[in-house]
Every structure is written in structure tokens, then in C-alpha cells.
Design a protein around this nucleic acid. Structure first.
Lengths: 336, 336
DNA sequence: CTGAAAGCGCTAACAT
DNA sequence: ATGTTAGCGCTTTCAG
């Protein structure tokens, strides 16, 4: 491992000069600086981020908190796609990504402790239980954070437009002549709350009355649960003409049941998903769904976090809402 | 930020004693040690990994190299699922995960340089071009590495069982009475080579003659490409009775074309995928495919890497092949 | 059993 | 324009 001192010796200068040359910082003679840099390159010098950090308190490392109850956050396309975007954006700014977790061996650190332990410059928080005291603790700490799909007062947050999303869906359904709209909720989270209230509001605005029996409790990413809810909906005397699912993935569970009942999509019943996973466009029928712009969400959250890190004073908290769009697939029938 | 020195002062001992107490290491009086630990906890002490690293040369941080040409490695379920497994396994052993890349801002580091810069204890390499000199350079370096789905001589590697996988598929098809088997290859990689030769071998063993026109060039994860290949195969005078696709995802492109041709799966033509993505079980018909055990691959690679890291002398290079299994779905017809 | 001291690789005043 | 020096927080001989 070659270090600054080696370069200094080789060049016959002090280590301070080498450090300065390497940073292009100060008032070093340009010739000398040039020469030092050349030698450093020749010797294959690689800075040691930990040593730099120890002095500067900057790690150029961003923590990503990506856990969920089923510990499969990464397996959801919405999140893996987002993570990929975060990674790309962060790298473009010279930051690396490290996962934050309960560091099991290291005395079971809290999220905050783990972030401190690794000296990350900031943390992007997604796919967690935002009521978790540990999460709240982290957000309230001196560490810059950006949350995704959940806002804390006075903190920056990037969200998918759940209000508009659900509204777009309902408006579209209304346009297609649907009045009997069923809605299967996802897990009890703030995202779900937004979608639910937006659903009710949009129905109201369209003069659609929502029967209580049309609204079901469901779960994200669990096709089985959606399947059960679907079965119940299909068994109703006054059957809905369309079912809105919590997400594209769980919607597939609904399809299974619908087909098992000998019904055809969309002729006998229409269905709508949420997320816009890539597969929603590949399978037939193409799923009508609201596409969340996970790439833009990831990109903006990384960008915002870096802004906070690099301008701690002047940066102002911001709640960014990232628009998605309705994908008009083939699962909704025009019944006008 | 509270540090060892603060604890030492509070306890009226030296920093050396605190360090020892915290590690349960040495011959400190158990009472004293206990007391020091108690105070440390009360004061909310969190070790600084960078400072520790500087002394010990151990970061307890694992690099993960996960890039591909389309820079979407993470968006493939096979890899995101694997990454999740790596993360979980590493965390259980007290290691964190940091992505290795071309650190763009930091003078465009090579993979090796980046790994050094971040002082990772080892690197898991997946989803890259293994012919890339940078990758080879990293593997040949003093940094412990484990590669996935590609083996370097004398180095540890965890692979999916591509030979057996393709063989299982062909044997199954033979059992179902298929003799006209078409095969769409994936990108030109060693994984593909294994699958291709295994395909030929298995056909031979089953007394199946492979027409040259039945073997097509394709691409992984590109439904469009599979669609084109499918169209060509369907246009043949002597049409195959079954098509093997490079993966489940691209298979969907094939389905589109098949249906566009008014053919029914599996009545008119059978299809087989590869990977066993979760959706393969959710859509109808359920896809007949070979399920790669990405979770086990991730877990084993993390475990092996940590073993190498912790026992640099005694650890021996190992080529682990992780078995998958055939998922008998509904896309292959028994034509006996 | 405990402490003093050196130093990991680097940066940034502060000299010169 | 260049060098000296004092640490960043921690571990680890080595002395006591």
C-alpha cells in the first residue's frame, strides 16, 4: 500500500506538499504540483478514505436504509429500481452507498448508531416502518436524511404521488363508465392512507357512491391476500364492475381467482393495478395501472441528500412529489 | 461524538483499559471491565469504524460489484434477490455491504482501486463482464474475492447449476415426447456457453437431433429479441413443438408473438423459461422453467467470502455449484 | 492488572 | 512556495 509519505520521499518534498498537490488546493508551484501528481500516478497511489475521513469528517458515503418486515424490500421492483437509481446518481457525485441495518454482530446497533459507526454523510430512508422509534431517532438526529414516501416535519422527503395516482385511476374508471368500483387496500401505512382517502375523494367528485362492501383490507405484494379479497368481491350479490388492487404484483392473485370463476378480463370484470412494474407491459392482457416513477424518486432523493450534505446551512427542507402516469392497458372495459 | 477518551476520563482509567474492556480482550480486572462497559453504554459510546480500520486494517465491510452493460443489474430479479441474500448473510456475520463501481468523481478509480479506497475486506463479483481487464485485475489482486457464475482458476466461485439446469429441461421435454426442440440462446457469456453445450449434450443423450434452424441467437431480459426469434421459429416449415427461452422474462416476448399468431400455449406450442422468477408462478399459464436458487447462491457467496477473509491461510478455493429445480408449470404439453 | 506511548494515513493550520 | 506539526479515534505492544 503506497501512501503519501512514499510519494513525498520519492519527490523530495514534504507530505504536506503532496497532500496539497493531490487536492489542487493551495498555492503550490504548479510545476511541483504537476510533478508530484505524476509521480503519485506512477506509483499507483490510492487515497485511504478512512484516513481522510478521520481528519475531515466526510466519508463521501451515503447510507441506505431499506428494510421491511418481510426483510425483502429489495425484492420489490419499486425499491430495487429505486435503489439502482440512487446508486447511479450518488456515484455520479462521487458518493458510495452502504446499507444501514441493525448491525447484528456489532452489539446490535440501532440504525442511528450504525450510521454513526460507518460515518455515513447522510441516509436515505425507504421501505421501513416510519413509526419505528429507531427510524424517528435517526431522522431527528444530526445526520442528514431524506425519507421516501413518508414525510417528517421540517425534513426533506421524496414521495410518489399517491394522491394523484389514485385520483387518475378513479377518473379514468369513471370516464370508462364504471360506477361500481371496488378497492383493495394495502398494508396500513401512510401511503395507503393517502391512496384510500384519495380514492374516496375522487369517487365523490365523480358522483360515484362507494359501497362499504366494495372496500377490502389487503396487503402489498401478497397475491394470496388479493385473491381472497377478490373471491369475496366476486361473491357479492351486487358485484363491482372493476377492482383496484394494491399493486400489480398482488393483482395477479386476483386474476387467478377471476379466471377460476370463469370470468374474463376485462369483459366480465375490469381490474387495475398500481406500480407499473415492467411485467405489467409484457403480460397479456397488459395491465392498466398507475406507473410510479421509481427511477426519478431514487434520483431526486440522492440529489437532495447530497445537496443537504454539501450545503448544510443553505439547504432547505423540501417535500418533493414525483408524478407518475396512468398506463392504459387492456384490463379495463369501456362500459359506457 | 463521544469517544474512548471520554469514557476513560469518566472512569478514571487509561484509554488503553477502556479499549481492552470494550473488546473483552485481555487480562483486565473483570470488575473494572464491567464498570467501564457500563459507563460506555450509559454515555452512548459508538465505536468509529474508520479509526478502528486504520489500526487494524479490517473494515468489516464487503464490496459488491454488480454492474452490467445496461447498468441495470439490480433490476434483474435473479440479482436483486441474490443481493438481498448477500446482505442478510453478511449482516449476520457483522459485515456491511458497500457497492464497488467506477468511482466517477474520485479520479475515475478502477474497481480494484475503489475497493482499496474503501478498504473493503473482500468483494463479491456478480453480473459483470468477466473478461474486463479491470475485473480480472481485481480478482488477481490480494483482495479476497468470490465470483458468481464465472470461475477463475484458483479462486472461489459460486455458480448456478447451468449444466444440470439445461439438462433437466431437455430431459423433461424428452419425457413429454418432444423431439423438435428449439433453443434461443442468451448473450454470449460463459453461462450461455454452458447452457448451450448442455443443451446439445442432453439432446444427444435423448436421441434428439437438433436442427440448426432451431437454435437462435437471443439476449437475456429482452422480450423483444425473444419475440423476433420466436417469429422466425414459427415461420419455419417444420415448426418446433417447444421453444426454450433464455429466461422467464424474455419468454414473455415470445408469448406475445405466439398469441399474435393465434397459437395456444401449450396446445399448439410448448415453451420453457429459465430463472423461476416469482411471477412465473403467478401468471397463467404457470411457466415451466428451471428455478435458480438465487438466495442460496447469495448466501453461500457471502459465507465463503467471509471465510476467506477470516481464515486467509487455511481457507481453500472452492467452486460451489448450487442446484436449482425444474418447475413443472403449464406451458409444456405432453405429446406422447 | 493497568498505563504510556507509538502510530495507522491523512489534512490543515501555522510556521518559515 | 514549501515544510513542520498536531492531531482525527483507535489498538497494541511494552513497561511498570
Amino acid at each position: 500500500m503506497i501512501k503519501i509519505k512514499d510519494i513525498a520521499e520519492k519527490c523530495g518534498v514534504s507530505i504536506a506538499s503532496v497532500s496539497k498537490a493531490l487536492h489542487g488546493n493551495s498555492d503550490l508551484n504548479e510545476k511541483t504540483a504537476e510533478y508530484i501528481r505524476k509521480v503519485a500516478k506512477e506509483m499507483g497511489y490510492i487515497p485511504n478514505s478512512s484516513a481522510q475521513l478521520l481528519k475531515t469528517n466526510r466519508s463521501y458515503n451515503i447510507g441506505v436504509l431499506f428494510v421491511d418486515e418481510t426483510s425483502s424490500g429489495l425484492e420489490h421492483e419499486y425499491f430495487s429500481s429505486m435503489l439502482n437509481a440512487i446508486k447511479n446518481e450518488a456515484e455520479a457525485y462521487g458518493y458510495d452507498i452502504t446499507f444501514i441495518s441493525h448491525h447484528l454482530k456489532q452489539n446490535d446497533l440501532t440504525f442511528y448508531e450504525h450510521a454513526k459507526y460507518r460515518n455515513v454523510d447522510g441516509v436515505i430512508i425507504a421501505s421501513v416502518n416510519f413509526k419505528d422509534p429507531e427510524v424517528i431517532n435517526l431522522v431527528d438526529s444530526e445526520i442528514p436524511t431524506v425519507t421516501i414516501d413518508y414525510s417528517f416535519d421540517g425534513k426533506s422527503c421524496v414521495s410518489s404521488d399517491n394522491i394523484q395516482g389514485e385520483m387518475d385511476i378513479v377518473n379514468y374508471l369513471a370516464k370508462m363508465g364504471h360506477k361500481k368500483i371496488a378497492f383493495i387496500k394495502g398494508d396500513e401505512t401512510s401511503v395507503t392512507q393517502k391512496r384510500v382517502s384519495s380514492f374516496y375523494r375522487a369517487c365523490e367528485e365523480n358522483g360515484i357512491q362507494v359501497k362499504e362492501e366494495y372496500v377490502k383490507e389487503g396487503r402489498y405484494h401478497l397475491p394470496k391476500v388479493s385473491a381472497i379479497a377478490t373471491r369475496e368481491l366476486l361473491a357479492l350479490k351486487d358485484r363491482p364492475t372493476v377492482i383496484i388492487y394494491p399493486d400489480d404484483y398482488s393483482l395477479l392473485g386476483g386474476i387467478t381467482i377471476i379466471e377460476k370463476n370463469g370470468l374474463r378480463i376485462p369483459d366480465d370484470i375490469s381490474i387495475v393495478g398500481y406500480d407499473g412494474i415492467k411485467l405489467s407491459r409484457l403480460i397479456r392482457p397488459i395491465i392498466t395501472t398507475y406507473v410510479q416513477d421509481s427511477v426519478e424518486i431514487g434520483r431526486q432523493s440522492a440529489r437532495k441528500l447530497i445537496e443537504i450534505i454539501e450545503n448544510p446551512k443553505s439547504s432547505i427542507p423540501e417535500q418533493m412529489i414525483i408524478k407518475g402516469w396512468l398506463q392504459e392497458g387492456q384490463t379495463v372495459k369501456d362500459i359506457n
